[in-house]
Design a protein around this nucleic acid. Structure first.
Lengths: 250, 250
DNA sequence: CGCAAAAACTGACAAAAATCAGTTTTTAAA
DNA sequence: TTTAAAAACTGATTTTTGTCAGTTTTTGCG
């Protein structure tokens, strides 16, 4: 079922190579990604084999349980990676943006996807087929090391998050969540509005709480003049206080 | 402070090479570890540079905040890796046994340790100095790939755990925790007693709850004839029920 | 535009879990 | 062996958080 969804999605989007389907050798995202140390010949190999795809807001890029066929490199857009708990509730495990690579964990261990990737915005992605990727990986120790560093960093973040979820009350985690969104997607031109649209349910699934609790906490933050809502976006009014709230519960 | 503790510990134990400080080329733990694909010359290099250490129950192998100087390979014994939250509370992030490698994450990213490793039993460990390890790593793509697989596996486990902590009530997590201990350390000769001694506080810090809550849940499990206590160890009486308890809350 | 559906929100309540303040038991050290 | 400290345990209570049952607001279509 999930596999089917993924399949059809794949076909849908495969048709429309996105406008700026950039040459890998000139790709802006590359310098920030694990591919930063590739040789020119390797980039050309990637470039030849890759395919550009566009996903609309809400579309599934790959689904939990499906078999990975390659790697997804985000050119622009925003993506949520979420994992379903035993009771079917969604937990957001990661949020991605341009320069990030998706689907590597399952590909590297040859397992099924452990999470579903959904576009939160219109998103341009380059798809690198499995064999192409492993070909380059086999012959490039630098790429191996970049992957090791990326995995290590993700593992550290995950273990820190485990500690937070086990120890911090929801209010602190909500504050942290907002700071995390700020770190990940940055601000709008105004320098204070977080540049991402998420439903209250998504925010709850990121923080790890019930939707109603998330709503109540956000409106508390609003009453306390820590944030305000600008359309569907959140504007941080008092960053100091948000930081304090994230640590020492008051 | 942590660094100091670690230092002194290091010195203490460094003196006593452990009895069976095995030759790497014949090490039983190796076949199960990331070093399974090393060439003979590489094993000899490791063997020459490694040093065997013994840690007594309760001793610190390395401390959160210290700089990694190399890699620890567990020959036998049991180790807890725990991370302190902002309020100082301990969270057990991993449990290790023979064949496991410790301290790789910080070493690979050149960061300070994010967790403290404490021996839960008398433990024999081989220490591989930083340079030796990187030397072998540089020239052996198989080792790189083994590390990638290990990190990927740990990352998957960590993300699953994030979902559990965010979604499951403590009772389910306690049941899961006991099943995890069983998976990790196995049974005694009797085929039902979990082969690890942990304080109630440690169990609470593994599951992510208050010590009192852990005590109460364990005694509920005992009343329900799911487990019984054999000295300081836990014996599983009804594995089926434990599995059910871990999933659907009743 | 009007309407249905989805999302956001609110209040009351119940359940879960933490905290506090002890007591009892075990452990290890003198 | 005695004794002090640590660990395990218990009960009462409070706090936190989730759930349920709505209402209001927003969104996207036909």
């Amino acid at each position: 079922m999930l596999h089917c969804l993924q399949k059809s999605c794949h076909l849908n989007t495969h048709k429309s190579k996105f406008a700026g389907a950039i040459d890998c050798t000139h790709c802006d995202s590359r310098s920030k990604s694990i591919f930063c140390h590739l040789r020119h010949t390797e980039l050309e190999e990637l470039n030849e084999m890759k395919s550009g795809m566009t996903f609309r807001k809400g579309q599934i890029i790959f689904g939990e349980g499906a078999h990975p066929l390659g790697l997804y490199c985000v050119n622009n857009g925003k993506i949520k990676l979420s994992h379903r708990g035993e009771d079917g509730k969604e937990q957001i495990v990661r949020l991605s943006k341009e320069g990030d690579v998706l689907g590597y964990r399952a590909l590297l261990t040859n397992e099924r996807y452990n999470a579903t990737a959904v576009a939160l915005d219109d998103t341009d992605i380059c798809f690198i087929p499995r064999d192409t990727f492993f070909n380059v990986l086999k012959n490039n120790p630098d790429l191996s090391f970049e992957i090791i560093k990326m995995l290590s960093t993700e593992l550290r973040k995950a273990e820190d998050r485990i500690t937070d979820l086990a120890q911090k009350p929801v209010r602190e985690r909500m504050a942290e969540g907002l700071l995390f969104l700020k770190e990940t997607y940055g601000f709008e031109a105004d320098g204070s509005t977080i540049n991402i649209v998420l439903s209250r349910e998504d925010i709850a699934n990121l923080v790890g709480t019930a939707t109603e609790t998330a709503i109540r906490l956000l409106s508390e933050f609003k009453n306390d003049k820590i944030v305000e809502f600008v359309g569907k976006k959140i504007r941080i009014l008092d960053n100091e206080r948000l930081i304090r709230t994230a640590h020492i519960y008051d």
